[in-house]
């Protein structure tokens, strides 16, 4: 599904936390429709990279162009661009004081200025797609982890994003619930959504990714198609990493 149109362009991205240099210069391009999977050891900066992409973490150096606009530029309104970048967190982060339906319609109603009826109809449609239409009136605390994460995904989708960012979406789940979330993500990829996915699910990377990226020591240690990446890794650190996770 990858097209030639560049959706996100990252130029020499750097991120320091005080004296700690977490990202030391990352440059890459993400094409429309591409599924980029990011892997790496824990603490290598994968989350930081993902969080800088929508400026949840403000990079200390470099530029990020999203749909042609430099979103690291102080003068742009980052909130408008974030509406187009869906984010799914490891800990779901559903709003516990709102029903599932309201979790999903809050953004569309307040930000996209949709009518309540329209937003709810769209939300119900999305819930149906992930098999949770009957839980619309429930509250997050009444859902299983897998259900929560599926809701978190469709909550992001309700904003009609142009890219979806996933930060270890299955890491907080019981093993038996991982599949249901990955299935939703696979379908999303099939439908042509641009996705950046940090994950330890190598099976998902092999099956769904257009490109796999290994982050190590704050830089891109290696990247390539899943075939190259898993069959013939060149970076010794990547070889070591793969020998541990595969």
């Amino acid at each position: 599904m990858t097209t030639d149109e560049i959706l996100i362009k990252v130029e020499d991205l750097k991120m320091d936390f005080g004296p700690v240099k977490v990202l030391k210069g990352i440059s890459t391009q993400i094409k429309k429709g591409e599924v980029l999977v990011i892997v790496g050891a824990s603490g290598s900066g994968k989350s930081t990279f993902l969080r800088t992409l929508n400026l949840l973490e403000e990079p200390t150096g470099g530029h990020i162009f999203f749909e042609g606009v430099d979103i690291t530029d102080e003068k742009i309104d980052i909130n408008l661009h974030r509406q187009k970048m869906g984010t799914v967190f490891q800990q779901f982060n559903l709003f516990p004081h709102m029903s599932i339906l309201y979790n999903m319609t809050l953004g569309p109603i307040k930000l996209l200025k949709k009518s309540k009826a329209e937003a709810e109809a769209e939300a119900m449609e999305l819930l149906k797609r992930v098999g949770l239409a009957d839980r619309a009136k429930a509250y997050p605390s009444q859902l299983s982890g897998g259900q929560k994460q599926r809701v978190a995904i469709v909550r992001a989708l309700a904003m009609h994003p142009d890219v979806m960012l996933f930060d270890e979406p299955t890491s907080a789940l019981d093993p038996e619930m991982v599949g249901e979330v990955l299935d939703v993500m696979k379908n999303l990829a099939k439908d042509g959504m641009t996705m950046v996915v940090v994950t330890h699910e190598m099976g998902f990377a092999r099956e769904v990714a257009d490109r796999v990226m290994f982050i190590c020591d704050g830089v891109i240690g290696e990247e390539g198609t899943p075939q190259e990446f898993f069959a013939s890794p060149k970076n010794p650190r990547l070889k070591d990493f793969l020998s541990k996770v595969l």
Binding site: N54, L56, N79, L80, R82, Q83, M85, G86, T87, F89, Q91, N93, L94, F95, L106, G107, K110, L111, R155, A156, M159
Partner: peptide, 14 residues
């Protein structure tokens, strides 16, 4: 939880 704030911001709320 800080994640609540981040979820709000990442939806595009100021």
């Amino acid at each position: 939880d800080k994640g609540q704030f981040e979820a709000g911001r990442s939806l595009g709320f100021n």
